[in-house]
Design a protein around this nucleic acid. Sequence first.
DNA 1: ATATACTGTGTATTTATTACACTAAGTAAT
DNA 2: ATTACTTAGTGTAATAAATACACAGTATAT
Lengths: 229, 229
Amino acid sequence: MKEVLPVFNSAVSIDCVLFGFDGGELKILLIERNEEPFKDWWALPGNLVGENESVDQSASRILHELTGLSDIYMEQYYTFGEVDRHPQGRVITVAYYAMLRLGGDKALKPLTSYAKKAQWINVKELPKLGFDHQHIFDKGLEKIKRRIKHLPIAFELLPEKFTLTQVQNVYELILGKKLDKRNFRKKILSFKVLKELDEKQKGVSFRAATLYKFDKRKYAKLFGKEISF
Amino acid sequence: MKEVLPVFNSAVSIDCVLFGFDGGELKILLIERNEEPFKDWWALPGNLVGENESVDQSASRILHELTGLSDIYMEQYYTFGEVDRHPQGRVITVAYYAMLRLGGDKALKPLTSYAKKAQWINVKELPKLGFDHQHIFDKGLEKIKRRIKHLPIAFELLPEKFTLTQVQNVYELILGKKLDKRNFRKKILSFKVLKELDEKQKGVSFRAATLYKFDKRKYAKLFGKEISF
DNA sequence: ATATACTGTGTATTTATTACACTAAGTAAT
DNA sequence: ATTACTTAGTGTAATAAATACACAGTATAT
């Protein structure tokens, strides 16, 4: 116990929706909790905001603890503040999402104590989540759906070199609908952020597609402008 | 003083950017503080989140205390969580904005103790604000700029009956640029949320413009779709 | 009657969006 | 070598949306 002014009676936490694209599926990173409340339940990675870190720093720390990754752009998208959302007291949580480039299944580090394990799970097959985390996830997905229509954030999920079909897959998974191939290519190339490489896809049992990479400088300029899918 | 678990050592507050349109100007409601810290400074209306209210409820309460208005749609837009943003302890603040219909200068109620006075102030002539409130305001304005391009939220600032020129003025003030009259009208009417009335503007010393009102039902349907200016 | 100040309207051009289907190229199996 | 298979890659026409641009009409004030 600790003595404080009566107004300092709440806690603030961070929860993260970490998106990854792997094996043709859109996934998020979930942890299996090792602590009460919701011990043994799946949940979004999250933690209390420390006394000496900003909420942004806290989000980056959580990401780093789980994946070893730093310098990832994390977008704060909503703060959830229902009175009873946490069974042990007043905890208001600030939600962030990030788009991660998964290189296979790496990017998972030794875990901190509050989690038994962490796993990338297809967003179409999510288990039951503790707290109000299903709701937090739903809002996050909604958010990136809206965002991907205006900004080509999909590239952040892809490996450095990718095919146009892969880009289209990501769009279709996030938006939840099929897109026309020719129109999609016309549009995505019209942003002029993609560089065609002198290189083809490898290890496929059919005609290999041309690889592209994206031009970070031009891409950065696009933030500011808005574009649509 | 109060004894709590050590993690419950922070406070959460709400700050509100309340937009109004009056006398051809875009204004926000500011208070002059009557308490430390920043006593006698101008600041955004805000308060601590109570133990038994959600953050959304808290925002509505603050609006109600200052203006007497209820049932106003308030949009949460960002949470500010720098370690040192409040001089007296760890206070994380959740920012909301709302668009209000000002009927002249009414809509200001007897004030709560923490404020000496409240006043609608032109966004182009803001005084120096306490805390990080200038930053919070800047983000809020940015947010409605982006939002007004997609949704016709401007009507929420206007009186029940308005002219198309008034609508255009609001857009120009928020976006900070001039728009073409014919194109603006074509576009705004194409949404089909405006009803032309059999009535003209009164009390002007020139040709009176036709009044319109907006159709809340059709307007509600537009949320969901996205449109652009 | 005249000056003033704002209202209200149309068209042509350019740009973006949508709808739509086949051939080309590589791989795998026989 | 032939064939079957699978995905890559491409163009055009039709429609819709965005932009650029200027002047006559009408109420008011003097």
